[in-house]
């Protein structure tokens, strides 16, 4: 392989430095992969000397994002489920990015859920959380419908999101969650 063909490696490394990414993963999201990503995240945060409460917040949000992808992510044709997870760090602030394919029919539902969460105060989020905890039944997959509220509660910041059409049936869903030490 020629040297120029390997330049992309340096380019990716430069981009990761620019955006201060601690960890990036793209590919199949299975339970075993999730375990591996979480173990790596824990180690990275430990080596970085991140304080325990902040480390737990980042870890918790990672789990909810990864399990959301595993439970609700869609696969394109015969390919495995696409999932992307990245953690960026700027000083003491963390940004957790996740992306996966969803059905076009679910775009509005997810958008409405995020908007509701983003417009809620801290107390309102707690009330919503308790209401769902009490009223919702766990789905057959064992999901409680609490993921986005849990992420928002732990983050203490508005959730940033983006949808982009992939084809007639599927769209990309991108979520960015900020975690700051003062929260």
């Amino acid at each position: 392989m020629s040297k120029s063909n390997l330049n992309f490696v340096k380019a990716i490394g430069t981009k990761m430095n620019e955006h201060k990414f601690l960890l990036t993963y793209k590919g199949d999201i299975s339970q075993d992969i999730i375990k591996g990503i979480l173990a790596l995240t824990e180690k990275k945060l430990e080596l970085d000397g991140t304080e325990i409460s902040l480390k737990k917040k980042v870890f918790n949000i990672m789990v909810e994002c990864l399990q959301n992808i595993s439970h609700h992510g869609q696969a394109h044709e015969n390919q495995s489920k696409y999932g992307l997870i990245m953690i960026g760090r700027d000083q003491n602030d963390f940004a957790i990015y996740s992306s996966n394919l969803i059905t076009n029919e679910s775009v509005n539902d997810i958008k409405n859920k995020i908007e509701t969460v983003n417009h809620a105060s801290k107390d309102e989020l707690s009330e919503m959380y308790k209401e769902i905890l009490l009223s919702n039944r766990l789905s057959e997959k064992g999901t409680a419908g609490l993921g986005l509220i849990d992420i928002a509660k732990k983050s203490g910041n508005k959730l940033d999101y983006h949808f982009e059409s992939f084809n007639d049936n599927l769209s990309y869903f991108v979520l960015r969650t900020l975690v700051k030490p003062s929260n």
Binding site: A144, L146, G147
Partner: peptide, 9 residues
Amino acid sequence: FLNSSSVKM
């Protein structure tokens, strides 16, 4: 540490 579905359980 527990995930949200464990909280529900």
